[in-house]
């Protein structure tokens, strides 16, 4: 199957290893990955911060770039939630009927990584090997936005060598919230402190998630506290096959 990757702006810039892992994983599973270089950002940060005017051209650009893609894979649940929940309304509000139609036609082809693997490709065991103690953080967008349910956990449970430990208060927000972490830094830090306590209590070496945004925030705190716990995007765990590549 040909799969078109929307890497997202912050993964592209800050977490290239996540994108590389997605490519390696999908290719290992026998699929062809396409990466249109015209892509940049879905517009989420602008939209959620109140700059909806600025988000509109970014949506147009996304539609333009991916209009012919058969299957779109996005390793970020918050960007998928932006596209799924807000694009139809934005398109409708723009008064551009053709755009609204295109958005509607595009949405069924947009998949978050774990949706793609479990729903579209029907997989749970992706042949990964990852001999570490890992805990899974359910980001708010994956949990309540996309309602991913246990899809990520089903994939993780099939990883060989993994010691998967449950995170307490898994439904609690880590306090990232995009610009919230800066605009309400102190409250965000208080929320982070609680999340870090839960992560530390698991005794895990690795905290994983389907969103690097939360992980950047959680790892930022864990590193400052010198906990030694690392954060790794789920794609990187699934891409590991023990070959060290």
């Amino acid at each position: 199957m040909q799969i078109t990757l929307f890497i997202t702006c912050y993964n592209d810039t800050l977490f290239p290893e996540t994108g590389i892992s997605v490519v390696r994983l999908l290719e290992r599973l026998g699929h062809e990955v396409v990466f249109p270089l015209a892509q940049t950002c879905c517009g989420q940060m602008h939209y959620n911060t109140g700059y909806q005017q600025e988000a509109l051209p970014l949506m147009r650009q996304f539609v333009e770039t991916f209009r012919n893609a058969e299957t779109i894979c996005i390793p970020s649940s918050s960007c998928v939630a932006m596209i799924r929940d807000h694009y139809p309304k934005m398109a409708e509000a723009s008064g551009d009927a053709a755009l609204a139609e295109e958005v509607a036609a595009l949405l069924p082809r947009v998949f978050e990584l774990t949706e793609l693997l479990t729903d579209k490709l029907g997989l749970e065991d992706v042949g990964a090997y990852y001999p570490h103690r890992v805990t899974y953080h359910a980001s708010c967008h994956s949990l309540r936005g996309l309602q991913l349910g246990d899809r990520p956990l089903r994939l993780l449970r099939k990883v060989r060598g993994i010691d998967l430990v449950e995170l307490a208060n898994i439904d609690q927000c880590c306090g990232f919230g995009g610009t919230f972490a800066v605009k309400n830094g102190e409250v965000s830090a208080a929320m982070l402190a609680e999340k870090m306590r839960c992560v530390e209590n698991t005794g895990a070496e690795i905290c994983t998630a389907v969103d690097n945004s939360c992980l950047m925030h959680i790892f930022g705190g864990l590193h400052r506290q010198r906990t030694g716990i690392r954060t790794v995007h789920l794609a990187e765990i699934l891409a590991s096959d023990g070959s060290g590549a």
Binding site: N11, L14, I20, G185, A189, F219, H223, R224
Partner: peptide, 14 residues
């Protein structure tokens, strides 16, 4: 204030 930030890596995904 409470978080470290990893610098931007030398190579972007693209």
């Amino acid at each position: 204030a409470v978080r470290d930030l990893k610098p931007m890596p030398q190579q972007s995904f693209r």
